[in-house]
Write a protein that binds this DNA or RNA. Sequence first.
DNA 1: TTCGATGCAAACACTTTGCATTGGC
DNA 2: GCCAATGCAAAGTGTTTGCATCGAA
Lengths: 153, 153
Amino acid sequence: MAVAVSGNLRQDLHGRGQRLTPQRQRVLDLFERTGAGHHLSAEDVHQQLLRGDSRVSLATVYRTLRLLTTMDLLRELELPEGGKRFELATENDDDHHHLICVACGRTEEFESPEVLQAGASAAEQFGFKLLSPRLTVRGLCPSCAVLQGGEAN
Amino acid sequence: MAVAVSGNLRQDLHGRGQRLTPQRQRVLDLFERTGAGHHLSAEDVHQQLLRGDSRVSLATVYRTLRLLTTMDLLRELELPEGGKRFELATENDDDHHHLICVACGRTEEFESPEVLQAGASAAEQFGFKLLSPRLTVRGLCPSCAVLQGGEAN
DNA sequence: TTCGATGCAAACACTTTGCATTGGC
DNA sequence: GCCAATGCAAAGTGTTTGCATCGAA
């Protein structure tokens, strides 16, 4: 699970003239420990690190998240529900979509070749260069669906 | 183009015990005048109304956007690029997706039955009650693709 | 007339930034 | 030792809220 990406990180940072600081390692380590399917906000990262022995200032967390995102080690999710969230980037990222419960925020991931297809053809249609087709399906998870029953709002 | 929705609005508001105020009319009128495919932020709405003769406080714009969204007259987009955006809700909203240029923010819309399919089956798989599958494809529009050429970042 | 809606300004949540200090290379 | 990275606190965004006043029904 917790693959030692440190080697990659070291190389990636080095290759781009970036320094390998303990803070950066801690942040990336956290994402690796947490697993690929998790969506952490800057606050989450900050808190989790405090919980451990380590400590990284919130400002640095933000800076590091941006850096790692730029380097494609992390990926930013577009779930506007209260702040940006980040997750570990993986190889099959292009076909990795989210189902999000609008009531409780629970998220699930799924893959779908059709979506990949659809995104690609849409990009082609408008002459766009495709980066990442990302389907975000909004809905109600089983628990919340029961609570809210038939009535919306 | 600018269908007189005022009748519907009046009914909708009335039916839910809401008042039909000039401010609410102005906001909805703006969306109608602008057209269904446009994505306006609260700031946009505020400014555009100032440009006209009318004036609605920013706080009221926010309150109205939320109200109209709740009533399904508007729909909130999940394009986190600097603030929430809203657009006029239409019937075929469920099959209405966005292609967004990460460089300049230009957005295009497209439809795709496959996406609808994929969203529905994902929802089913996890026991979610589907609300709206919305594909957001991130990419580079023709102009920006030329500028940025091969090099990312 | 009544109670919800508005306007204003203060409060909020999240994110970025200036600057002195620290520390990776 | 140099220059990038950090920590802190202050400043920015975008959005919400408390409260007195206004006005739709």
